[in-house]
């Protein structure tokens, strides 16, 4: 693996990521149909989520459509209405905001906490490493959905609580990956060089060590966003997600379940959207993995 730092002259960086890796990613996307599909799906999803207020045809909470459970492809409401006569397309678009927000938020929470732990453990080694990694090991043998269900049950529903509840489960993934990366570059010349010229620990960790751990972390981040979205959908479905009145894909799916034989689209459409989006993010993640040449995650 080539590295770059102030003590090394190759390549530039964008957000800490080496530009040659970005070029490799673009190369992968050009070559690989699946990668292209992933990029397209992710782009559409992000646009729908960000611009939902502008793009949605109706207010997602408005109940003024006379036909309840109108089927899809009717003239005014392209994807039909739910059991309260609310426009399903608009609700799904607003639901994308929650999926994206919670997905990104949860993984960000896990990433920030985990990367910090991993950097500290890997950089200092010794008893600090032992202590932190034993703690992380304990988290490993913990069924994630139980944590999430319990935390939401305890702290109540709401976006932030769901983000923390879901993200908690990802701290150990990031800690382990970051630590492994740090250990593998800890003795590299440019880190030793930085130490020898008297840079402080913090400076070395954030300017020399961290940037060179970015690639595998980004790959893991992407994969976990997909998993976090599934987790959010599951929590919402169980009635333990964001507030019940908020349209989310999981909650819409749950509400539609009672009408499965009379109005199947209410729960099938959100499910299809979840599937396509998660599929797209997974394809995107695979393309990143190929481009960055990161091995599939191993436990240790």
């Amino acid at each position: 693996m080539t590295v770059s730092s102030r003590f090394d002259t190759d390549g530039g960086r964008v957000f800490g990521l080496r530009t040659d890796l970005i070029e490799q990613f673009i190369g992968t996307v050009n070559r690989d149909l699946k990668a292209k599909l992933g990029v397209v799906i992710v782009t559409l999803f992000v646009i729908a989520a960000i611009f939902a207020p502008e793009l949605a045809p109706y207010d997602p909470m408005a109940q003024d459509f006379a036909p309840l459970q109108a089927p899809a492809l009717s003239s005014e409401t392209p994807l039909g209405t739910d059991s309260f006569g609310r426009d399903l397309l608009s609700r799904l678009m607003y639901g994308a905001r929650i999926s994206l927000g919670v997905g990104l938020g949860a993984v960000l929470f896990g990433a920030i906490s985990g990367v910090l732990l991993g950097l500290i453990a890997g950089f200092y080694g010794g008893w600090i490493d032992d202590l932190l990694m034993r703690g992380v090991d304990v988290m490993w043998a913990f069924p994630w959905l139980l944590i999430a269900i319990m935390l939401v049950a305890v702290f109540g529903q709401g976006v932030w609580n769901v983000i923390v509840a879901v993200g908690f489960a990802y701290i150990d993934d990031f800690a382990r990956i970051t630590r492994g990366e740090v250990l593998s570059i800890r003795e590299e010349e440019y880190v030793l060089a930085a130490e020898s010229v008297g840079l402080g620990d913090l400076e070395i960790v954030f300017e020399e060590v961290f940037p060179n751990t970015v690639a595998p972390i980004i790959v893991q981040f992407t994969v976990l966003v997909a998993r976090a979205m599934l987790a959010e959908a599951t929590l919402s479905f169980l009635g333990l997600g964001v507030k019940p009145s908020t349209p989310t894909w999981g909650a819409l799916l749950g509400q539609g379940r009672d009408f499965i034989t009379t109005a199947w689209w209410i729960s099938i459409l959100p499910g299809v959207l979840i599937m396509i989006t998660v599929l797209g993010i997974n394809l995107f993640g695979d393309a990143l993995r190929d481009a960055f040449d990161v091995r599939e995650v191993d436990s240790e």
């Binding site: 499965i260 199947w264 979840i274």
Partner: peptide, 18 residues
Amino acid sequence: AFFGISMPAFWIGIVLIL
């Protein structure tokens, strides 16, 4: 397999029922 890892289990259940 890709479809498998991209669908929540409960939704697969609903589709199976249907």
